[in-house]
């Protein structure tokens, strides 16, 4: 675990040695504010309810289409292109520790961003303003959903970054994959086949996150995100190992 921690720490802090982390966090918070207060059905004020449901609807999309692709695109692709991967792997470290360290480092940055969005409900419903009686348990389950979703999304980004040496390709592959998974549920109704409809609804991130935003925590949803995360990390490990036999 020591090496995993060292890699994760380096990965996490390296984001803050460049403008990347600051730009991503600031830009994300600004965009979230715009969507939260202005876009959704006329904005939060038009809802006229003490709820953060709008935030939990917009945040996964912001994470999927902006944050995660940017954060994960360079994880392994850039290391392979620049040759730093050879330096890293020839240290006394196992391949799965590299994958796990990279994952934790990138996920850590996304979690920082998610944590920063907690300022919205805190400022609006606790201090300095108190705009109503917010159901904090619903907020908690919404954040749990975001944490799980971000883990799955980062693992997908890490996997796609492990398959290419180009950051740009990794970015667009991640973006496109998360786009498909996010909106797949919307396409479910267009399928005439019932099985296809069920499958589309089952693998849709939107559909899986909706219960969390309503305060419902289903075991199936938990398992879904954890399974994606585990599967992608395993495949990333395989993708990294294949260099040995190429």
């Amino acid at each position: 675990m020591r090496t995993v921690w060292n890699i994760a720490k380096r990965e996490f802090t390296s984001n803050f040695l460049s403008p990347l982390a600051y730009v991503v966090i600031c830009l994300s918070l600004v965009l979230l504010g715009i969507f939260f207060f202005m876009v959704w059905g006329g904005g939060f004020w038009q809802a006229d309810r003490a709820t953060m449901a709008q935030m939990f609807q917009w945040m996964p999309r912001g994470l999927a289409f902006v944050v995660v692709p940017v954060v994960t695109m360079r994880l392994l692709a850039e290391e392979k292109r620049s040759g730093t991967l050879e330096m890293l792997i020839t240290l006394p470290v196992k391949d799965h520790e590299v994958i796990l360290g990279k994952f934790l480092g990138a996920w850590g940055l996304v979690l920082v961003l998610i944590a920063a969005t907690a300022l919205f409900p805190i400022f609006m419903f606790w201090w300095p303003w108190n705009l109503g009686a917010l159901d904090w348990r619903t907020v908690g389950s919404g954040y749990l959903g975001l944490v799980l979703f971000s883990a799955a999304a980062v693992s997908i980004g890490l996997l796609l970054s492990a398959l290419t040496e180009s950051q740009v390709i990794a970015f667009f592959l991640t973006w496109a994959t998360l786009l498909v998974f996010t909106f797949w549920g919307l396409a479910a109704d267009t399928f005439s086949n019932q099985v296809m409809r069920d499958v589309a609804a089952y693998v849709s991130f939107d559909a899986r996150l909706a219960p969390f935003a309503r305060g419902m925590i289903n075991t199936r949803d938990l398992v879904f995100f954890v399974s994606i995360c585990f599967g992608c990390l395993m495949t990333s490990f395989w993708a990294l190992e294949r260099r040995k036999w190429a």
Binding site: R2, T3, N6, R10, G83, M87, L91, V93
Partner: peptide, 27 residues
Amino acid sequence: GYLPQRASLYGEMSVWEYLSFVADMRG
């Protein structure tokens, strides 16, 4: 101790930070 062909290092780190990272990795 291995020095690969193009000595690719993490450019965003300072020399001390990088060597410290390698030392941590080597325990």
